[in-house]
Amino acid sequence: MNWQGVFPAVTTKFHQDGSLDMDMFFKNLDAQLDSGVHGIILGGTLGESSVLSLDEKIQLTTEAISYINGRVPVILNIAEGATKDAIFWAEKGRELGVSGLMLLPPMRYAADHREVVTYFKAVANSTDLPIMIYNNPVDYKTLVTISMFDELAACENIQAIKESTRDISNVTRMRNRFGDRYKILCGVDTLAMEELVMGADGWVAGLVCAFPKETVAIFNFVKAGKYEEALQIYRWFLPLLELDIHPKLVQYIKLAEQMAGIGTEWVRAPRLTLVGEERVKVENIIKRGLEHRPKL
């Protein structure tokens, strides 16, 4: 598993009646693949995994793997409250043919140091799939500390970290402590260029769902040392990237996909599509972005 590059956390596409819209899902996958992304992540927050049934998750994973057909790795996100459920999805992911796992700390319970480490090790020891630990204390209230990563280094298949602490210096802190033991991928769109410049290996991206070419261009320019070229795109992109750090990021990004022609805005309850002043505000941000979209 090569944990380097741009990994879209793709949205799950629905029809207005709430049923899966696989045709639009595949259309968006085409846009991602044509733009040169390096992997696809299924079942994250943007994928609305919490409102999908078990059968729908299996269908989405199976059909995505079949459609992508080995062109890039497919990563399955695991966000569960019970250790046995996380192990179930690790085993199911292996059975379905995913290339790796993205793993959050236990959900809905504020686990302590020992419990978090034990949870991660239990899942890692249950599978040979490579794992990326998702470290997002802002949204999920559990900080995976450096001392936890010290203990997790014993699990060879824990290979990468989705860095979403909002602390850019954590990239340097992790490099100083672990060298290249863990690959580091930025998980916050508004800090992506900064963390890539500081040595992050990749970008788990959100607005890539609507703007894949621009996202990949920023990554490629930074890694080629062409910072001015990257910065020109990044400055244009930032008002759009800020849609990723709002509690309604799913609705915002899905609306951006729809306006960009590669998605629909339909979400599942309890989420609702945008209305009123909020909708006008977000539409205006997206409209300005589309009107001034850079020529690559």
Rank of each mutant, 00 (worst) to 15 (best):
Q4F: 04
G5F: 03
V6M: 01
V6I: 15
A9R: 01
K13R: 13
H15Y: 15
G18N: 05
D21Y: 09
D21R: 04
M24D: 07
F26I: 05
F26H: 12
D30I: 03
A31Y: 13
Q32F: 11
Q32G: 01
G36T: 11
V37C: 01
I41P: 05
L54W: 03
Q59P: 00
L60Q: 04
T61W: 02
I68N: 07
L76E: 13
K84Y: 13
I87M: 06
A90T: 02
K92V: 10
G93R: 06
G93Q: 04
R94A: 14
R94N: 14
E95T: 09
L96F: 10
G100Q: 02
L104D: 14
P106T: 00
M107S: 15
A111Q: 12
F120M: 14
K121D: 08
N125Y: 12
N135D: 15
N135Y: 04
N135T: 03
D139Y: 10
L152R: 08
E156M: 07
N170F: 12
N170T: 08
M174A: 02
R175Q: 15
R177A: 12
R181C: 02
I184S: 05
L185R: 02
C186Q: 11
D189N: 01
L196H: 04
G199S: 09
G206P: 04
K213A: 15
I218H: 03
F219I: 08
N220Q: 14
A224C: 09
G225M: 10
Y252K: 02
G263E: 03
G263S: 07
T264Y: 11
W266I: 05
A269S: 13
L272H: 14
L274H: 08
R279W: 09
E283L: 06
N284T: 12
E291D: 15
R293G: 09
L296I: 13
